[in-house]
């Protein structure tokens, strides 16, 4: 009975030490206090490789990362989307992926673009996307078996149309608003030019 109590005590101690290290690791990852400005900073996991790196003085002011796994998709124009993401691969533990992949999908799940990315904190422009369509972007990992495992998913966004709508209702003066077929106006610029 006595040895059972000792065993239980040892197990409890072991559990406490384990929890302490887990918490400590989490806190180290989450908060680093900058000596000068004293605010929350995330850790830079690896240098960013993009041309629009934050400049040296920026680093003193802004966190490189925020310790939150996330991916965001933004619309630039009918043919271009922009995504930025932050992902802490160490959270995968033993399951560390051989490569990260960025995948752009139409809202129905159809894959539009899929390619490997190096950066766990990065950004990307998707060009030549379809106007008037709904998209999401995912960040995933491919393991040794090459299977794609989704890690992060953005909220959906909608690209705008690039021309007038084909949907009409009521009375409509079609001659006016077919782009490219706009009737030439009688107005001619008459001001003096040098």
């Amino acid at each position: 009975m006595e040895s059972f109590a000792w065993l239980a005590l040892l197990a409890l101690l072991f559990a406490l030490v384990f929890i302490y290290f887990i918490l400590r690791q989490g806190r180290q990852r989450e908060i680093v206090v900058h000596p000068e400005v004293d605010f929350e900073l995330g850790q830079e996991i690896e240098p960013r490789l993009h041309h629009h790196l934050l400049r040296e003085e920026d680093e003193a002011w802004l966190p490189r990362t925020y310790g939150e796994d996330q991916i965001t998709l933004m619309v630039r124009d009918p043919h271009c989307l922009y995504a930025y993401w932050e992902f802490d691969a160490t959270s995968l533990g033993e399951d560390h992926p051989s490569s990260l992949h960025l995948r752009l999908l139409k809202h129905d799940g159809r894959i539009c673009q899929d390619f490997p990315v190096c950066d766990r904190v990065g950004s990307w422009y998707f060009h030549q996307v379809t106007p008037a369509s709904r998209f999401v972007v995912t960040l995933g990992a491919r393991g040794p078996d090459r299977a794609y495992r989704e890690l992060l998913r953005s909220l959906p966004v909608m690209t705008p149309p690039e021309g007038p709508s084909s949907i009409v209702n009521g009375h409509y003066i079609s001659a006016l608003w077919d782009e490219g077929n706009l009737p030439s106006s009688p107005v001619r610029w008459q001001g003096g030019r040098p």
Binding site: P160, E162, S165, I167, V168, H171, I173, L176, W177, E179
Partner: peptide, 13 residues
């Protein structure tokens, strides 16, 4: 306005 859906009856006018 010109690209709104449905197509505006008076365009931008």
């Amino acid at each position: 306005v010109a690209h709104a859906c449905p197509r505006p009856r008076y365009g931008t006018l």
